[in-house]
Design a protein around this nucleic acid. Structure first.
Lengths: 332, 332
DNA sequence: GCGCTTTTGTAAAGCGCTTTCATTTTATCG
DNA sequence: CGATAAAATGAAAGCGCTTTACAAAAGCGC
């Protein structure tokens, strides 16, 4: 691999000049610039990442941290990855994705200074990554809300609005007995969503009733159990709000029980996972505008990197309802 | 952030000693080792990635390259990510995931020397990443087979065997008119799978008939069109071999046509995507042993990094049939 | 042509490590 | 006990860049 010295020699200038030209610093004769660029092109020169990072004391790289647990196989995550990759590239940074199974591997990575800042996904209520990064003084943006939001930049879906979207859609269709089947409440978003749903119910004069709420452990069996619990407590349920992945199981289980969707029961998802459109029947759900979230997160981090002392931002992105075929008028 | 100098000062030794102890080089008095380790612990010292990479002329990092196209949202990819992350960590390397939308972003990255070697996923028939890496002289392992396999380390599923698995299962159930609905043939695996299926059919004296093969463009509409083409050409089809994602659409479309699965038609998938178990009915498919593939790929790359001149390895991993509820005896 | 500014360029230091090679200390042996 | 080998440690060079501080060349008004 050629080094900056090779380019300097070929172009007949000093390495300082090569460096400055490549980084758009200072002014140079067009002719000099052309000679340098030609040499770069000809030798296919790329500045060495390690050397550049070391000298500049910045890596110009942003890393997205994803937790990969056996359960988190929602293809929505792939959409996030792609959208964030693009948004970060657009904001002029290199993009890296780090997948950790445990905090230790995250820590080993985060403390080597391989990147200037982090984007955190799959936020837990007490997310240890946040504590760690704060302690290390490494800039980051949290995509999702931990319990303790003090002093952290946050980009998230506006769950108060998504709850309203789902609920108003069902109310307009005449539903009154609306159940909520939550994903594990240890996931921050799940707890926040439930809270928002309850608040919204109340607002419409429909008391949130504990009978109408169940929690799955994330597994298929758990979802079936939660559904059974809901059903055994209240046969008059005509609609279920849940998340996209459990929705698949809900759809299948209800059909097994001889119920037709949406004739007998309406089901609505929460995040327009790519799966939702493939469900049978295609799932009515809430589209999160993943690209906007990605864009906002990349921007927030770029700002934080530039102005370390700026006050933390909490950005909520609105969503939109996607009506497909799993919701319909409430049965009499 | 503390540097190696801080540790050396605290422990009362030279930086050489700190470096050697941290990298298990040379022999040291247990007492010296203890003093150094204590200082490392106390100051929470981590060697700087850039400095270390620059000095050692290696980064001890392996990157997985994934192409993210709008279509590639199979959650199976998430399983691959997780399994490969673990396998690479186990083999002692840092793991990074790079997601590119275009070759340019891959090239920009690959040529900065941020990692010692690459793992390539989602291989295309003429994969430009392979050409590029070869030209740069950067070690890599291809997970999947490109058209030109000369001189490249390859780890892949044994598609000849998976074709046999699927076919023998269907034959044993009495099926004779077996269709194949392929994903876009530009994806290497799709073409290879089709070829293997055709070869296997022939072996069993069932001539591969062009009427029994259709190709989807990867979209839902495309899958429906392919299915319609198949049906319009031959009403006597009793089983369909396809990939997991299109299988979801196949299942739903057949049901819409008033067919019951598996009573009227059996459907079998190809890769035991996490979706397969959630399908309705749960999909009979082929489990690829993702962990073994990941393990083999990580190992192959580690070997290549150690012995640059070793002859290229082509490793095929066998798969296993997972019988669920989408396949059954052929109708009379 | 003289002093001035502006433009264009360079030399050298240093980022935080690893590595080579030399040096000091300690153990071993006749 | 001195010579020798082995064990333990350190000094210094250098990885490939950026950056600072400074110098040479060119342009300009008079």
């Amino acid at each position: 691999m050629p080094t900056i010295y090779d380019i300097a020699r070929e172009a007949g200038v000093s390495i300082t000049t090569v460096s400055n030209i490549l980084n758009n610093k200072g002014r140079f004769k067009p002719e000099t610039v052309a000679r340098v660029l030609e040499a770069v092109e000809r030798l296919k020169y790329r500045p060495n990442f390690a050397a550049k990072s070391l000298a500049a004391r910045r890596t110009n790289t942003v890393t997205l941290s994803a937790l990969l647990t056996p359960e988190s196989f929602d293809p929505l995550n792939l959409q996030y990855f792609g959208a964030i990759a693009q948004a970060v590239s657009r904001s002029g940074f290199n993009f890296l994705l780090h997948i950790s199974h445990d905090l230790e591997s995250f820590e080993r990575f985060a403390s080597t200074g391989i990147c200037d800042g982090w984007l955190l996904m799959m936020i837990r209520r007490q997310d240890e990554r946040i504590a760690l990064l704060k302690e290390l003084g490494v800039p980051f943006v949290s995509i999702g809300r931990p319990d303790e939001m003090e002093g952290v930049d946050i980009v998230d879906t506006d769950f108060e609005q998504t709850a309203r979207l789902a609920l108003e859609h069902l109310l307009a269709l005449g539903h009154r007995r609306i159940a909520y089947l939550a994903e594990p409440l240890e996931f921050g978003y799940s707890a926040i969503r439930l809270r928002a749903y309850l608040a919204c119910l109340k607002e419409y004069g429909l008391e949130g009733n504990a009978d109408l709420v169940a929690e799955t452990d994330g597994t298929e069996a758990g979802t079936v159990r939660a559904l059974e619990a809901l059903w055994s407590r209240d046969r008059s349920i005509t609609a279920i709000i849940t998340h996209d992945i459990p929705a698949l199981t809900v759809l299948r289980t209800l059909r097994e029980w001889g119920l037709e969707i949406p004739r007998d029961v309406s089901v609505i998802g929460c995040s327009d996972s790519p799966l939702a459109a493939l469900a049978d029947p295609p799932l009515t759900t809430i589209n999160l505008y993943v690209e906007r979230i990605a864009e906002a997160a990349a921007e927030a981090l770029a700002r934080r990197l530039q102005e370390p002392e700026a006050p933390p931002a909490h950005i909520l992105i609105p969503a939109r309802l996607v009506v497909r075929e799993s919701t319909g008028p409430a049965p009499r």
